[in-house]
Simulated assay, not measured.
Amino acid sequence: MFTAAWTASPQQPTEGFTPNWSREGFWRQSLRQVVRLSAGGGRVRVRLSHTYGTSPLRIAGASVARAAHGASIEPDSMRRLTFGGAHAADIPARGQVVSDPAELTLAAGESLTVTLHFDRATGPATFHAQAFTPSYRGPGDLLTAADGTAFPEVTESWYVLSAVETDAGRSDGIALLGDSITDGFGSTPGADRRWPDALAARTGRPVLNAGIGGNLLLNDSSWYGERAVHRLARDVLAHPGVDTLVVLIGLNDIGFSETDEQPTYKPAPVVTSAELIEGHRRLIRQAREAGLRRVVGATLLPFGGSDHWGERAAKTGHALNEWIRTSGEYDAVADLHRALADPQDGDRLRPAYDFGDHLHPNDAGYVVMAEAAAGVL
């Protein structure tokens, strides 16, 4: 039985937060991406997403290997991937493809490279904007290149790749649905110190990151992805081996109307706590109808002093958190607000956990989040 060991939620091509290659796409190039697995096994396969493509996408070839340093690989670990027995694959517009399994022994916590060769112009590429991990591009067919110097271009986004699965045979996976805090904003780039990484290390269970920076519970965005109530089925429920969902979402719905800094919301919709609560109920219903064993609610982190803060935002956030804590509608509650709050001011992040924008945790804060969540899983 295959188990999802790593995921990245697809987003439509956009300029996004930092320079990326999603709009220009790829042509006569190879793309090497590095992902850290939360479940090991003896065989591995990859899931490639063309969710936002408008014409077929040609994959001329693909390979996997155990990562070394940067874009380099351990040469003896390189395996060519096949798709229905063929080395190439054509993914239809808005479709996806799953590779055949490749024999490669991997342990939980190891990093895998996935290399894709594009021999035809791809057009704009479905991607995940904020990887906080380098991805690499080079000219021509570099599927078997062991030396990372063959890939001179670097970005911090993932492209086309949406999941890696291993034959771990696990059915106790944890999926974290959220926004930039789950995606890992504020963590050390390239160090795998997001809170999903910390939770996987603490629990020993497969943990899937279904966060998208800027994501909202109730509204779609060109930069920040489809609303969480719509993408849950694709980004969580469709992956094998998941039995627990942790929900940490709603802060951007509350806070975007407090700031002029958001490029796709001018003005941002103003939502009520009642609307947010109904959104959370929709997530709970979907998860239970899909047969998940547990659905855990996480309270919103303190955000006083940030660009999301204001009198209305404060009242709405407090009301949502109180409902998560006391309604009994979630199977359990991870009270991340209390775990990370400043003892001197409960509306603010404790300074030792603050990345610096009073909104996102740093590496230490993400560890505390994982510890708090692990205690109720």
Rank of each mutant, 00 (worst) to 15 (best):
T113Q: 07
H128I: 08
G148C: 07
D147Q: 12
A129M: 13
P139Y: 11
T133D: 11
P124R: 05
E165N: 14
V114Y: 06
E153K: 04
Q130F: 14
V160F: 15
F185V: 15
A121T: 08
I174Q: 03
T133Y: 11
S171A: 14
Y159G: 01
P134N: 13
P101F: 01
Y159P: 02
S111R: 12
P124E: 05
G169D: 01
T144K: 14
G178V: 02
G109T: 06
V164P: 05
I174D: 02
D179Q: 12
G173C: 05
V154W: 10
A102N: 02
G140L: 01
S180E: 07
R137A: 07
F151E: 01
D147R: 12
E165M: 15
R120D: 06
E110V: 09
I181F: 05
E165P: 14
L104Y: 01
A163F: 00
L106W: 04
L112T: 06
R137K: 12
F151H: 00
H128Y: 11
A108L: 07
R170H: 11
S111W: 10
F185W: 13
F185D: 13
P124S: 07
D183A: 15
W158F: 15
V97I: 10
A146R: 09
D183T: 13
V98K: 08
D119L: 04
W158A: 01
Q130W: 12
D141G: 02
S135T: 14
G140D: 02
L112F: 09
D179L: 08
V154M: 13
I181W: 04
F127K: 11
T144C: 14
T113M: 08
E165S: 15
L104W: 02
T133G: 13
R137Q: 10
V114M: 06
E103T: 10
I174R: 00
R94Q: 09
S157A: 12
